[in-house]
């Protein structure tokens, strides 16, 4: 019995290069698309004015970034604490297991976003998405 029973379906031949021409084109194309997306979609330079906090898919509070405050937002797992301070908003504690929202840090620019999927809390600074696009076209 052969040791590898279906060699035609098994690994690519050892001699083949690690990256083919098509792989390199794909990588290059992916990089270009990624950079374009960054230019188009990353939050712009403009500071946001207000912040929306949504819980369970509904607006919980609309606040102003220049007004320091602390909000206790209820979610299915418990309370997410959101703090507005020094023109920025951050999640300072959350009952969710992975704490992505806490580690997202502070956001202050238009288009800024913090999402806690497990506790269904969304903090976003509304505004024109594609602020960086303006930067390019200026």
């Amino acid at each position: 019995m052969p040791l590898i029973s279906s060699p035609e379906r098994a690994a690519p031949a050892v001699r083949r290069p690690l990256l083919t021409q098509a792989d390199k084109w794909l990588l290059g194309l992916g990089l270009i698309i990624g950079l374009l997306l960054s230019a188009l979609l990353l939050p712009g330079r403009e500071r946001g004015r207000e912040v929306l906090i949504e819980a369970r898919g509904r607006l919980f509070v609309r606040a102003y970034l220049d007004t320091p405050a602390r909000y206790e937002v209820p979610g299915p797992l418990g309370t997410t604490v959101v703090e507005v301070r020094e023109g920025a908003v951050r999640v300072i504690s959350s009952p969710c297991p992975e704490k992505h929202c806490v580690r997202s840090g502070a956001v202050r620019r238009q288009g800024g976003l913090i999402v806690c999927v497990p506790n269904r809390v969304i903090v976003r600074i509304p505004g024109h998405i594609g602020g960086s696009l303006d930067m390019i076209t200026e």
Partner: peptide, 20 residues
């Protein structure tokens, strides 16, 4: 299902480039 607003797409470049 979670963020029903287009702000989520600001994350697109942040997941695209690392994924590559």
């Amino acid at each position: 299902f979670y963020v029903r607003s287009s702000e989520i797409w600001t994350l697109l470049p942040l997941v695209w480039l690392p994924a590559l």
